[in-house]
Write a protein that binds this DNA or RNA. Structure first.
Lengths: 190, 190
DNA sequence: GTCTATATCAGGATAGAC
DNA sequence: GTCTATCCTGATATAGAC
């Protein structure tokens, strides 16, 4: 892995663990095993490096979600697979957490990938639900867009609850709860 | 308002806007119109002041929730009232956001009120749902604890979506969505 | 490309005068 | 109780040598 890559990976980890405001160039360099000069040779500064890191994380996240949501199976199966996918609940969402970072939200360039990722995810889930409705798997009364927003929000909020509690328990409960609520909208197979 | 009170109020605002890591003693003092000496006279340092601020915010939040959740009406009415209560979605939750602050999570004293508030809220909502079930308002199949976790998570996550989008739209959709899902569990009145 | 030196400013606090 | 002076460290870079 090149030095530039190691710098990006270290930044990704630190942004996840400590956020943008809580991450210093020095900490990034140390974790990457790179010197100051090296970092400022490859990147113009902290925002530039953060942008590269955030973009990479955003892409990975969308790719992973797309894989699960475009798999074969009913809409409900795919949503459940997405929600049950392996996650480190206590670490939180590497994209969602940036939403609480004042300096990220203040910089349009840094904010854009965060906005786009979450918007894409809602949109993608809405399409899955819409498909389920069209196929008659799901109740016609179910609002795809609103429900998609609820699913993404539940996931994001479940991370918050897990971190507050220092336990995955409330995370699992929130996921169980939303899937339970959704189940009531699954139409019986003929 | 006393100087100590102004310091606490300024800290509450700044913690909400910028988080713990992003809030400096100097910024607190300036907003409160107090000098350094004044701040260090009333509080031992930033963590001490933050603790006072977080506790006050936590208490207010629980009091507000209790007011709405203990009001007369069906379980569904009260949950809806709580979810629809006036909120500045773009500002996020002043308690939930602390969950993303590494220094807050690392300090047991600062973390405790965050943990307790969110745990209490889940518990309180679970009781409301349980009551609804006992009264026959809600479907017996509904799991009160899991559903309560889902409701709190949806709210917390809805803030994340609103902030990412820079719009209250996804917040409203998430709330609409979860209430829609819940509605399917309301039993018809005899 | 990477290193070391240097610079500036902010964070977070202490000390002692008033 | 509040103010000012002072202190030390870390954040975020720039400059120039190697």
């Amino acid at each position: 892995m090149s030095t530039a890559d190691r710098l990006i990976e270290s930044t990704r980890e630190l942004l996840w663990e400590r956020g943008y405001v809580g991450t210093s160039p020095k900490a990034i360099q140390q974790r990457a095993g790179a010197g100051q000069g090296s970092m400022y040779h490859h990147f113009t500064g902290k925002p530039d490096l953060a942008l590269a890191a955030i973009r990479r994380t955003a892409e990975e996240m969308c790719a992973k979600a797309e894989e699960l949501l475009s798999a074969p199976g009913t809409a409900m199966d795919r949503v459940a697979a997405y929600l049950h996918r392996e996650r480190d609940a206590l670490k939180g969402c590497p994209i969602g957490r940036l939403t609480q970072d004042p300096d990220v939200m203040a910089d349009p360039a840094l904010r854009a990938p965060v906005d786009e990722t979450l918007a894409w995810l809602r949109e993608r889930l809405a399409r899955v639900l819409e498909e389920g409705r069209e196929r008659g798997e799901l109740d016609a009364a179910l609002d795809p867009r609103a429900t998609a927003a609820t699913i993404v929000a539940t996931l994001q909020g479940a991370y918050v609850l897990a971190r507050a509690a220092g336990s995955v328990r409330p995370f699992d409960q929130a996921i169980t709860g939303v899937l339970g609520l959704l189940t009531a909208h699954v139409r019986p197979t003929e």
